[in-house]
């Protein structure tokens, strides 16, 4: 499947296999991962992604068609995660298979830039608070202790 929204982890190996074909002399795969950015509220530990499913998949088809018009013969893959994606996991995979590298690089770059502005997908940060832990209270002495 070349257009996909999934709440399950995305596999780079599967994406590559989906793009492989005898005529694909060049395959470019872009992977977007969640970064542990620092925010004013703390450090990002995950991103929550939500998508308006049907319009999002429709936008993937539109991007695919637009890439094909610019780079005839290119075969595109657009996969995006939904739900909570922890730091280090893959949030998005965009791939392009073509006869030659210039079309594959161009189409992959074109598609990820389009996806970011054209696909109804939203992310929100999940952060771990930067506040230092509160000092522990000293325990009262056990009765009869000592």
């Amino acid at each position: 499947m070349l257009h996909r929204l999934s709440s399950r982890p995305l596999s780079l190996a599967r994406a590559y296999r989906a793009l492989e074909s005898e005529s694909a002399g060049a395959i470019v795969v872009f992977v977007g991962r969640v970064r542990p950015d620092a925010t004013g509220h703390g450090k990002v530990v995950a991103l929550d992604y939500e998508a308006d499913r049907n319009p999002a998949l429709g936008s993937f088809r539109e991007i695919d068609r637009a890439a094909f018009r610019r780079y005839p013969g290119v075969r595109m893959l657009l996969w995006h995660r939904t739900g909570r994606v922890p730091v280090g996991q893959i949030a998005v995979i965009v791939g392009a298979a073509a006869s030659h590298r210039s079309a594959a690089f161009g189409a992959a770059r074109f598609a990820i830039e389009r996806l970011k502005v054209q696909s109804p997908i939203w992310k929100s940060d999940r952060v771990r608070s930067a506040r230092p832990p509160r000092p522990r209270r000293s325990r009262p002495a056990a009765p009869g202790g000592g």
Binding site: G32, Y49, A51, D52, P55, A56, H80, A91, V92, I112, L115, K116, V117, Q118, S119, P120, I121, W122, K123
Partner: peptide, 10 residues
């Protein structure tokens, strides 16, 4: 009707 604020995928 569905309201889409600016997108932020990727």
């Amino acid at each position: 009707i569905t309201l889409h604020p600016p997108y932020s995928g990727g």
